[in-house]
Write a protein that binds this DNA or RNA. Structure first.
Lengths: 225, 225
DNA sequence: GAAAAAATTTAAGGATAATTTAAGGCTTGT
DNA sequence: ACAAGCCTTAAATTATCCTTAAATTTTTTC
């Protein structure tokens, strides 16, 4: 996975790159709008992280220019808190998501996953989340020596939960993604499976839990944060 | 944005139109299935709101016929609460989303936004107001390290307050927008929720307050002292 | 192919959180 | 002080969610 970082604040750019490298992403950094546009036009990136305020050309210009040139690379826009309203709202420059500075690395990673997943990219077969490990190719949930097998639907839901980390997953989302858009599964089906998953997380003594947010959905949460 | 409303219940149709006009959408209303199909076939609409039960032709027929004629306009189907099975046939016949009656205007607007969203359009799910931050996708109010969850109606009201920052929001406005056009909630319901919100703003130590303007309503205000 | 096992769905009652109701206290303006 | 409008809180009600067991369907095994 190749990521381009366009950010003139050198300290932040470096920190971003560090976070990405730790997650085994490849990351290039450029510091101004001209370079950002040139590099972006190459089309070799899977994602562009683009600051709004940049020397020579701002982020909106770059995004619009990339789209005009049929570059479809997902763009994650970074904005300072006070510029959200006058600039971002009602905008149609071509960005796919935006994030306000400062932000937590967790959130950055969650958004990157969401953006790059849309393009058919699929998840690693093995993931650590909180204190447990999930192996998607064997559908196994484990922590230490404890291990338990997930059946098909349980595994699908676990994948969704992991892929959406900090984001709340609605039951409708889960139904359309796991059962299919035209299924007649009801919300109780989801509830039942969430219950099964909780029992299994509990069985391996994981302290990670599936939290419910009433009327909105579910999210995975590690107990110490 | 041009919207077609196909609804035979005249009171509801009128209320729907009113809600849409307030949001600067253009809205046409027709009251039976024949007109609904004719108008829909014109292809000039960006969205069709379609009741299921209609004179002459029901919503499913119309949706199916439109799709057969290559009209790709997004369709939002309205169904009565007890006809759960409608969901399936609705999606089969070509509708893109469905909503059960009665519904709150805010939910309607959210679904309209989702259906008419273009690729690349940025979604603002996070807002700063005064000294706090409100994340609409998780319904979380935060300031610094303090954080508190808002339940559904609290969140709806907070969204309204933030969206109407400069304007005084009357209780009637809040009731019709959050509880629905034909709800029998009274002003005390609003008062109770305003009280809940104030307690939560206080809990995160925000200096922003919900100010009461007697006989008129409420507005958010940052304290300048 | 039939029996057994596993996975999935359904249904019902209990648990929990959201919402409404109601009653008494507070403020503000006259 | 009084009335009107608003605030706050606890208790009552309701909606949503959880959990489980049993029923059903699908898959595996013999």
């Amino acid at each position: 996975m190749n990521i381009l970082i366009v950010e003139d604040e050198k300290r932040l750019a470096k920190a971003l790159r560090q976070i990405l490298l730790e997650q085994k992403y490849m990351a290039d950094v450029v510091h101004d709008g001209n370079d950002g546009l040139d590099y972006g036009l190459s089309g070799i990136y899977d994602l562009i992280i683009l600051d709004v305020m940049l020397p020579y050309r701002d982020g909106f210009e770059i995004a619009a220019e990339l789209r005009r040139n049929k570059v479809e690379t997902p763009i994650l826009m970074l904005t300072a808190k006070d510029t959200i309203h006058d600039k971002v709202s009602g905008l149609d420059s071509g960005a796919d998501d935006y994030m306000t500075k400062p932000f937590a690395p967790e959130e950055l990673l969650a958004r990157i996953k969401a953006l790059t997943r849309r393009r058919g990219e699929v998840i690693l077969d093995e993931t650590d989340f909180g204190d447990f490990n999930f192996n998607a190719s064997t559908s196994t949930l484990s922590k230490g020596s404890k291990e338990v097998h997930l059946n098909f639907k349980e595994a699908e839901i676990m994948k969704l939960l992991i892929a959406n980390r900090e984001i709340i997953l609605s039951k409708e989302d889960i139904i359309t993604k796991v059962w299919g858009y035209d299924s007649d599964a009801g919300s109780n089906n989801v509830e039942a499976y969430i219950s099964f998953l909780r029992r299994k997380l509990n069985f391996i003594n994981s302290s990670t839990e599936i939290k419910t947010v009433k009327k909105l959905g579910y999210r995975l949460e590690t107990r110490n944060d």
